[in-house]
């Protein structure tokens, strides 16, 4: 093997597969120039990490981004791409044959939207609490229904809080549960219609069911089985 700088860089970065790694190690053991280069690359890398400036975001930027996102969320043209997607579907002539699916699809898309928005915008919960007796009364006056709030900590899904969101043309309750480092959003609103469904979208699992006159949607990036367990825990009568 000849001295090749980029392989030594990749070796220092621990980016080589075991066989290439082994070859480089063999070579370094016998080639003083390359061993020197390896040491130089590693030292300079550490120096850059330690001494070159890492530009943290100033507080004023944090505030202005927050303000811009809030203004955007409150704006009227909230999801212009939804209109685009609908137009494309219409043009394809698909919309008539799959109307109810399309409605459910759009709802699922809105659910995903709300979930991602809450993560990016940093507004996971409006009422952070693991106590259902704090979360449920908080919804009073904010919704035209009273969602049932269950504590599922014993099942491995501790409650993190709740928020109010706007989905499918109405205000809905969102209960946020935790599973390890992941969030599960549970959307609830009164509705009689709709059966069970399950979709994968943008890397999230979305489960839908109807129970006791409430339409329920659960979304998370946890494993599908875990989310199904979550659904079963929600549906189980206490």
């Amino acid at each position: 093997m000849t001295c090749s700088r980029q392989w030594i860089d990749a070796y220092v970065d621990d980016e080589l597969d075991p066989s290439a790694r082994w070859q480089i190690e063999q070579h370094l053991a016998g080639c003083e120039a390359c061993a020197g280069l390896r040491a130089q690359i590693a030292a300079r890398r550490e120096q850059v990490r330690a001494a070159a400036p890492y530009y943290r975001a100033p507080d004023r930027l944090r505030h202005s981004v927050h303000a811009a996102l809030r203004a955007e969320a409150a704006g009227p043209r909230r999801w212009p791409w939804l209109a685009v997607a609908a137009t494309v579907l219409l043009a394809a002539g698909l919309v008539w044959s799959v109307r109810s699916n399309r409605e459910r699809d759009l709802l699922a898309q809105e659910i995903v939207a709300s979930h991602v928005r809450s993560t990016i915008g940093g507004r996971l919960v409006d009422v952070p609490s693991s106590d259902r007796h704090t979360v449920r009364p908080w919804f009073n006056g904010k919704l035209d229904f009273s969602p049932e709030v269950r504590d599922l900590a014993a099942e491995g899904f501790p409650l993190a809080g709740g928020r109010v969101d706007y989905v499918g043309g109405r205000t809905v309750a969102v209960l946020v549960y935790r599973r390890g480092n992941h969030n599960i959003d549970l959307f609830l609103w009164p509705s009689e219609s709709g059966g069970d469904s399950e979709t994968q979208r943008n890397g999230f699992t979305v489960l839908h069911w109807t129970d006791a006159g409430m339409s329920a949607w659960a979304i998370s990036d946890i494993a599908r089985d875990d989310l199904q367990r979550f659904r079963d825990a929600v549906r189980a009568r206490p």
Binding site: Y55, A57, P58, L61, S64, V65, A68, L69, E72, A73, P80, W81, Q109, A113, V116, R117, I120, G121, N202, G203, F204, D221
Partner: peptide, 21 residues
């Protein structure tokens, strides 16, 4: 840099369907 970051977060917010997990 601050302008770019602000615009990036707005874009991310609007076009998150480009996010595939």
């Amino acid at each position: 840099a601050e302008d770019i970051v602000q615009e990036s977060y707005l874009r991310a917010f609007r076009f998150f369907e480009g996010y595939h997990g």
